[in-house]
Design a protein around this nucleic acid. Structure first.
Lengths: 330, 330
DNA sequence: GTGAAAGCGCTAACAT
DNA sequence: ATGTTAGCGCTTTCAC
């Protein structure tokens, strides 16, 4: 392995000068600078990043916690994060939590061990008090997810309004018996979606039915299960509000497999507006979330914090709009 | 920041002893071991990973290069890689190349700068000669992808046979005018798929038509484009062999949108057997690839190489089987 | 403009 | 069983 000392010896200069060239510092004569560059090439020298991290007390790496990489919504956020990260010479360390509290906590250790400079949650399982102790180790940001008691920046989408609009749309179409599929949590994103849903209902004088509320529904398989439960009911809903396009796709597929017509027999609205929304038949009405953009904004805030250690523990809330895309499933 | 020296001072022991406890080395009395553990807790000590990497000359991180995270086939490989990595205390560094030669090369630098111990390609854009210089920096493995002149382990799926089986199935169903959608490369995986396709054709005495060969086709949008081209033809194929379920989904959707019936007017076969294959109507005949398994096998080989520096440059080929899943689109 | 040297936090010989 | 110490490769004062 060739080190900075090798380059120094090879050029007859000191390690300090070589370092200055590596880091593009001024006060090196153009001639020596070129000499060093040449030597680095010839020797195939690359700075050892562990040594740099140790010395500089920073790694240039930011961790991103996602529940599941197989969900296109999260990979799309990552796309946005990556664009900005790359421009700023930051590496993303993508960590899959599988929605496990324990895994989440274990990835937080990356901050303690200085393996990363900052950390971004795109979903969060643990209550904030468990996360709190880590905020001293480097900037933490909540992206997409949010929690009332968190003391860090949160970049969120207007979930309340999103589900309010979606639900209102169903009501305007004449549906009154509306089921709701959501996540498990009774806070943050999940809670706001539920609130928006209920607000639209009550505004129209409709009472929500507990038996039509389905929590812990996340993917295609879950959607199929929900539809099966609905099919077994005597009093079936005529429309379903879902928490993701994947869930909606599962519901639609299962409905069709049981000879129901969408939206005549049952209307379904998705959430996210991923590719699948336009592949399935009927094409899906859904709530578009600017997932790449939320990623970009988040990383911009992260970079701000990284350069500005002072304010990293400030509670800030950025909210991006969300909108309804009407297609054929409602 | 609390360091090993703080723990040493706090316990009245030496840094060496503390280090021994951290790394679970023997020759420390149970009493002092407990004392140190207690102190680490109380002080909130976590070892600095940059210092460990520098000292140990290894990072415990393996890079995985994927073209696009939004393709479920690759995230599924990652799932497999991750399972085994986790068991062996390895971190994955997931790198998205966007199928760019330049990005690929730039990620290879991670090996040079010692930011990772090894690197896995799940697809490869550059010719092998460009990669070759990096094999000295740590184990490199080709997973899913392969190249004849590569001198490293390759874990591949039997692409030739997969596309042979798929094509034969189409022929047995009575289709003779068969289009082919593939990737861009004329080597490795892409080439083998083409070979398998052509072999099945020629075995049946069918001549492949150049005008029905579509290269550089990767996602839903590409699939739609291909279908549009087909629609514009005077002499249309009656079946399409595709390189992924996403492509097939795009083709099927576009066909239906133009009032063609699948498979009566045009049959379509996918590749991968992802979730979308069972969501679309008609449900898709496709070629199942054991994507998680190939990930697991790859990481097992990686771990072997990491422990066994000697043989990391050996050319080995592992081949996993692939099989046909017949549904309704053919 | 350039060099000498200290030290980032850790581990592993080697000594006791 | 425990401690002393050198050094991993790099950057950054502080001299000159």
């Amino acid at each position: 392995m060739t080190t900075i000392a090798d380059v120094a010896k090879y050029t007859g200069l000191s390690r300090a000068t070589v370092s200055r060239v590596i880091n593009n510092y001024p006060h090196v004569s153009e001639q020596k600078r070129e000499l060093v560059r040449q030597a680095m090439m010839e020797l195939g020298y690359y700075p050892n990043s562990a040594a740099q991290s140790l010395r500089n007390q920073k790694t240039g790496i930011v961790a991103v916690l996602v529940p599941r990489l197989t969900n296109p919504f999260f990979t799309s956020i990552i796309e946005g994060l990556e664009v900005i990260a790359e421009k700023n010479n930051l590496q993303l360390l993508i960590c899959q939590t599988k929605a496990s509290k324990q895994k989440e906590l274990s990835f937080l250790k990356l901050l303690k061990t200085k393996q990363v400079d900052g950390l971004i949650f795109t979903a969060i399982e643990n209550e904030w008090s468990k996360i709190e102790p880590y905020v001293d180790c480097g900037p933490i940001i909540l992206c997409n997810e949010y929690q009332d008691d968190a003391t860090v920046p949160m970049i969120k989408l207007d979930q309340y309004n999103g589900s309010y609009m979606g639900t209102k749309h169903l009501i305007e179409r004449g549906y009154k018996k509306i089921a709701f599929c959501g996540g498990g949590s009774e806070s943050g994103l999940s809670l706001d979606r539920k609130k928006g849903f209920l607000a639209a209902l009550s505004e129209a004088g409709i009472k929500g039915e507990d038996k039509w509320m389905f929590p812990f529904v996340y993917n295609i398989g879950d959607g199929k299960k929900v539809m099966k439960e609905i099919l077994a009911m005597d009093d079936r809903p005529t429309a379903v509000f879902t928490s993701s396009d994947e869930v909606a796709a599962g519901i639609i597929k299962e409905a069709k497999d049981n000879n129901l017509t969408v939206p005549e027999d049952i209307a379904v609205i998705g959430f996210d507006d991923q590719a699948i929304a336009q592949i399935i038949e009927p094409e899906m009405t859904t709530i578009y979330q600017p997932s790449e953009e939320i990623g970009r904004v988040t990383m911009e805030v992260m970079i701000e914090l990284l350069n500005n250690k002072a304010q990293s523990k400030m509670k800030m809330i950025y909210e991006l709009p969300i909108n309804l895309v009407i297609r054929k499933s409602t």
